[in-house]
């Protein structure tokens, strides 16, 4: 059954790598737009253990983009929908559903035992809490964020603190998405790129470090920026 299930993963993923994926444990912080697509893709790829963390229940305004939301589960916990979805799609994946908000107090516990963490959050301050927790846990953080037609992805290895360069000195809670909205295709695109980065990282493949990939879906443009090595969040080179 397992061989058949993952047949079309071959030979992009070798049988040995497929077996390795089954041993991997990831945690997705946020189970909304990005989080739903991340769960779907990582689960179908065959990642063995996926912890999903989100305190919220589905609302009608989630229906425009959140894969796990439907008219049938409005008012129900997002993480519960995640668990049910993966049970239906790939019961080989263990889903640990935690209906809690991530805070500085529990972040380290939420990341415990995981090989990689995915940022599917919806605000800036929580992302800095997550970056610190990933640094403490010494695991890679795959960052993604969207606003309207735009989005960005970045792999943050422990100690690189790349979110400091991306968000700078901003003390804002939110970004452009307050004005430009959050669209299904942007969320899907960014989640897919985050999944690709996660897969590469989990399989110990070399991927370019310190790159911020910007998506502008309106103009069909990708821009790859290099983030410099610096201890100061004031520094930036910007050239690739």
């Amino acid at each position: 059954m397992e061989f058949e299930r993952y047949l079309r993963n071959q030979n992009a993923i070798s049988p040995q790598e497929q077996a390795l994926l089954a041993q991997k444990r990831v945690v997705i912080i946020g189970c909304g737009g990005l989080g739903g697509y991340l769960l779907e893709q990582l689960g179908r790829l065959g990642v063995g253990f996926i912890r999903v963390v989100d305190p919220d229940n589905f609302e009608e305004s989630n229906l425009n983009r959140q894969l796990l939301s439907s008219t049938l589960n409005l008012g129900k916990p997002k993480v519960l929908a995640a668990k049910h979805r993966m049970l239906a799609v790939n019961p080989l994946v263990e889903v640990d559903a935690i209906q809690e908000g991530m805070t500085a107090a529990n972040a380290t516990d939420l990341l415990a035992g995981c090989d990689l963490v995915l940022d599917a959050l919806d605000n800036i301050p929580d992302r800095f809490i997550l970056q610190q927790a990933a640094k403490t846990a010494q695991i890679p953080l795959v960052h993604g964020a969207v606003a309207g037609w735009q989005g960005q992805v970045c792999l943050v290895l422990p100690g690189q603190d790349l979110l400091n360069l991306i968000y700078g000195d901003s003390e804002e809670y939110s970004g452009e998405e307050q004005e430009t909205g959050t669209l299904a295709f942007t969320v899907g695109l960014i989640a897919s790129l985050m999944t690709a980065i996660s897969l590469q990282t989990l399989l110990n493949k070399e991927i370019p470090e310190r790159k911020l990939l910007l998506l502008d879906a309106k103009n069909l443009e990708f821009t790859k920026l290099s983030l410099p090595i610096s201890s100061s969040k004031q520094q930036w080179a910007g050239r690739d």
Partner: peptide, 26 residues
């Protein structure tokens, strides 16, 4: 470059400028 310096901060020939939109949706 802080926002309050946008009107006065000079850009010289050859400068390398980065402009990032703040995005936080998910």
């Amino acid at each position: 470059v802080p926002e309050e310096q946008y009107d006065s901060y000079p850009i010289k020939d050859g400068d390398d400028v980065m402009v990032l939109h703040l995005m936080a949706g998910g």
